[in-house]
Design a protein around this nucleic acid. Sequence first.
DNA 1: CTGAAAGCGCTTACAG
DNA 2: CTGAAAGCGCTTACAG
Lengths: 333, 333
Amino acid sequence: MKKVTIADVAKQAEVSKSTVSQYLNKRYDYMGEQTKKRIQNAIEQLGYQPNFVARSLKQKSTKTIGVIVANILHNFTTEVTRAIEDACHGADFHTIICNADDDPVKEKHYIEMLRAKQVDGLIIFPTGNNRDLYQQMLDASYPVVFLDRNVEEMPVTAVMLDNQRAAELAVDHFAEKGYKRVGMVTTSIFNHVSPRLERIEGYKKALNRNGLTVHEDYIISAEPDHLQESLEDLLHLDNPPEAILAGNDLVLIEILKYVKHKGLKVPEDLAVIGIDDVSFASFYTPSITTVAQPTFKMGKMGAELLLDKIEKKDKKMNPSYRFEPKLMVRDSV
Amino acid sequence: MKKVTIADVAKQAEVSKSTVSQYLNKRYDYMGEQTKKRIQNAIEQLGYQPNFVARSLKQKSTKTIGVIVANILHNFTTEVTRAIEDACHGADFHTIICNADDDPVKEKHYIEMLRAKQVDGLIIFPTGNNRDLYQQMLDASYPVVFLDRNVEEMPVTAVMLDNQRAAELAVDHFAEKGYKRVGMVTTSIFNHVSPRLERIEGYKKALNRNGLTVHEDYIISAEPDHLQESLEDLLHLDNPPEAILAGNDLVLIEILKYVKHKGLKVPEDLAVIGIDDVSFASFYTPSITTVAQPTFKMGKMGAELLLDKIEKKDKKMNPSYRFEPKLMVRDSV
DNA sequence: CTGAAAGCGCTTACAG
DNA sequence: CTGAAAGCGCTTACAG
């Protein structure tokens, strides 16, 4: 089964390769009706499919973008990714998703690999620890947009949640319901991941604004694997929190596991709000109050910004685009 | 910022392009130490990155595979996809995931698009309605493997769950616990999706084997959007089922929503088993008994079979590889 | 041990 | 309105 090429079509249709190429690219303003038909027939008879790789080499565009996510395990990531794919699909771009698994070394490897494959641009959920690489792409004016996170002093367009506001919404809601001792649990902030820091910041601000005390020992950051012990410690302080804000979906799940395992009642024994509107929040018992991120809009925006950059539409872009979180009031508070 | 090519490296190192190419491809058995060093230096100085597209054109391999899933919304799909990516990553292959959204037209579009991009092979969760296309790939001995589903009389290697067994495990468990009236709800079987049919088959067999009656009106197939009404009807039959087997994760979620909305107690008012071990099964209240699929193994196997086909290792392959489901006994029965 | 030349399958000025 | 020719950035026999 030999591959049929443009040369075969040209021969069959008795025209030149150039003409077939024009036809394929729909530049037939001045093409004779006869010619068009002959080409059309030849293509059908031979079952010709253009080789996109050859075209890419010449045109220097693969119509493919890369997406490097920090950690695919977050529900947020899955949803945003899907939105990116949808938006790209509409523009006839393909998407290659890579999971850096929170590892800067993997991230580096993927950036290099994808650039070697000549993807037209990159959406990165940055680990934050490849500043030189980010800078290099910036210098080469290679199209990049950051998603979910930004990197200090790195002027890459970033699509982000208003993370402070997200934490504030949660804390205000706790305060409104009369909770005084409010804790916060996030995954590791070892790498200075910006949303986590911003959420902690917002949490503290809102506590202050509501006249509540900030207890430093109510603030926990740990890897998911160690969260059970951390929670155990947290809830056995002399004066433990009566409410917890979960910094993301993975943390929320660990809290729910803990609560179930210990036979605690939500919200009576412990009130809970999670940032990220997990799939089961609405039909869990009790249903879970969450702060939802507009994942679909964020992914769409990320893709659109990148496609604009790729197509050199020099639209003025903000350094970052912040999206509004939304409190989903349910029964866990 | 001009792209630096192999020619630039050759000039800088004062050797020919061929030699640089040999170096890049690690064919330096007979290459002089001097030459190697000079090339190495030139590459570093220029920051040269090989263009993978050019290489692909020549070598007729993109080191990329395509994965076309029927519906990305299933948890099963996400997990299998991740396993495929992991396995491919190990073999230095990239993965492009496309979501056919249960639409044969989209599926066709993706198959053509990916083949035009010269992906080296395809893993398909087939919608089942593109027989001509599947056949064409078979005729061209193009590497394909099916996942999750197979297509009647289409000799494509398929990686599947032992679906009958999955339903049997669930029904046996219901029977053991003393339930007599057991219903089954799946998503639409309009397109003759093989796992759904096999699960219904297994459900009936197990009912018979346990001496229980098969009520045809206990078997529901509908799109997720209509499941609430279908459940309402089902549970208002004169003699409604006291237990339901959910054919997949989406169905299970609809059942849990229904139950919550109606204030029913699980398992007292209605016992439930779901096929697919959803993320929240273990910490839901009550925790949910499920039938787990070995998603990771299945994805890995799918990828390995495809890579074997791509590398022409003519290993004998079964027409299908069936995986054992596993009952996860919890509190919803 | 290394280089000149052809070629992978397209596109694109340019000429006519 | 259509074709000949050059070129995209690599790889690969083959010659020496």
